[in-house]
Write a protein that binds this DNA or RNA. Structure first.
Lengths: 122, 122
DNA sequence: GGCTATTGACTACAGATGTAATCATGACGA
DNA sequence: TCGTCATGATTACATCTGTAGTCAATAGCC
């Protein structure tokens, strides 16, 4: 399990995380237009996601309605952790340090994170 | 440019970022043993990285010495930003929020990040 | 009842990736 | 000088990915 989700598949997942269940056509219509995919491409991706058990489907007349089986939070969690593990030795602090340094953070951003951290302190 | 670095290639890059220049054999010896790669595999990966202009090589007698042409920081930067863009709308705060919530941060971790942020405040 | 449009299933196909074997060449020791 | 070994180059090959075309079933329209 925990099959990887490719980049193109991810675009489909974002649609389904935003709204589900949806038919294949609904999904295709909601894919960001800059992708410029044919409806067939979307159907292929839905098929692959089904095969990986990342989405499920239920019959609705002659078509299917698709819905995610994996929560976005879990996916995001896994990807974030992968990155942290690969590039920052699994530590969050260096990741934040790195991004904060390069990304001109506004004072509001900083304040927001500080507030967040305050809330977490036990 | 800015060719993508695959997962396997990344393992090679980590070796070269840690120490360079190195011969193909040196690199192979330094690959984490759990990868369990043959020397040929490493040479293939070096060849692909060369083709992508991510590493360079200089002659040293009958062999080459390889060295990175891309700084680790730049790579890390790119990958981190990709993740932020894909999953967090390009914003750092939600990323930190997400990771901080799920990752049981110790009070020391929090203090460390707070200190870091304090230093950034303009 | 036959034609057409929708929808999922299957097939296609090039490029990337992971993993490696084989080939060619030159250096080096016997 | 001849065979052997190290080393890079070339080739191999299965799988995954991105992108889509084609086929088959079916449901509704005329």
């Amino acid at each position: 399990m925990a099959e990887r989700i490719s980049d193109a598949e991810h675009a489909v997942m974002e649609v389904l995380w935003d709204e589900a269940p949806l038919s294949a056509q609904d999904v295709a219509e909601r894919i960001p237009p800059e992708r410029d995919w044919s409806a067939n491409t979307v159907k292929t991706l839905l098929g692959r996601l089904l095969a990986k058990n990342i989405i499920g489907h239920e019959e609705d007349g002659r078509r299917y309605l698709y819905r995610p089986l994996v929560a976005r939070g879990d996916y995001v969690e896994g990807e974030s952790r992968r990155l942290m593990d690969r590039l920052f030795g699994g530590k969050l602090t260096p990741l934040v340090a790195h991004l904060a340094e390069r990304d001109a953070l506004t004072n509001e951003d900083i304040a927001e994170i500080e507030a967040l951290l305050k809330g977490l302190k036990s």
